[in-house]
Amino acid sequence: MMTKGLVRLQRLWSAYWLLLPALSIYVVFLLYPMVFSFLISLYQWDGLAPVKKFVGLENYRVFFSDPASLLALKNNIIWMLFMIAIPVALGLVLAVILNERVPGRTAFRAIFYSPTVLPLVAVGIIWSWIYNPTFGAVNSFFRLVGLPELTRPWLSDPKVALYSVILTGIWQGTGFPMLLFLAGLQTIPRELYEAAEIDGASRIQSFWYITIPSLRETFVIVVSILMIGSLKVFDLIYIMTWGGPGRLTQVMSTWMYFNTFVFHKAGFGSAIAWIITVASLGIAYPYIRAMSRR
């Protein structure tokens, strides 16, 4: 009995030993910086000078009353709504079609997913070239078909700049939900559809009454992941518009970057980082809960 207890103890020890590398990296490079970042957010500080001024939660209050910051928040919400609605709808339609024995389905799946594996820097540069006001493909196309009044500087016209980048985001971001929906569809038993067909249900009815309800969990996961991703959006905006024209296309992440590292408002920037984090963790909560209960 003595040895059995000893073995158990040994095993427990090794559990902690095995966890130690991951835990220590987590604590040093994630938890400690998070606490540090919160402390910085309570100060007015340029990020360099040895003197800081304690201002309490002032930076957070300023964020929610500053028009430029609220615009970044609003832009981010617009980005999120588009980046959920269109990639989810399009991804679902594509998944449903590609789940059937359509000729060339493997090739189509690879095509629709391929933009997702690209570095966003490259995606931004590619689309900046497509949107180029003088030589770009979009304006060239409109001139070619005799609609020159539709040409515009897509990335510097205040009315369309954000939406131009959103279109790029959709091109890049539709493959991922498609892939998850395809996996979700494969878990629905074929017999359900066969039974519905025998009962005289149309394909549309099957879609609404079998496919959609069966994909409930997939929807939660897809929407959570897309929302978290939308809150983090940085690369495309940074590459394509640099937050401009003016500050009109700033989103939370770029706004945090500009304040912290360009305007040297480290305290304010850290407050923005914390606001993004709290929002992101709130959104991620159902997803994390679903994952940790397995």
């Binding site: 910086p33 998070m34 970042s37 910085i40 983090k232 850290s270 923005i272 984090t277 992101s280």
Partner: peptide, 10 residues
């Protein structure tokens, strides 16, 4: 759920 932004400056 934790964005990269939070660790950049620290």
């Amino acid at each position: 759920g934790i964005p990269i932004n939070i660790v950049l400056l620290p």
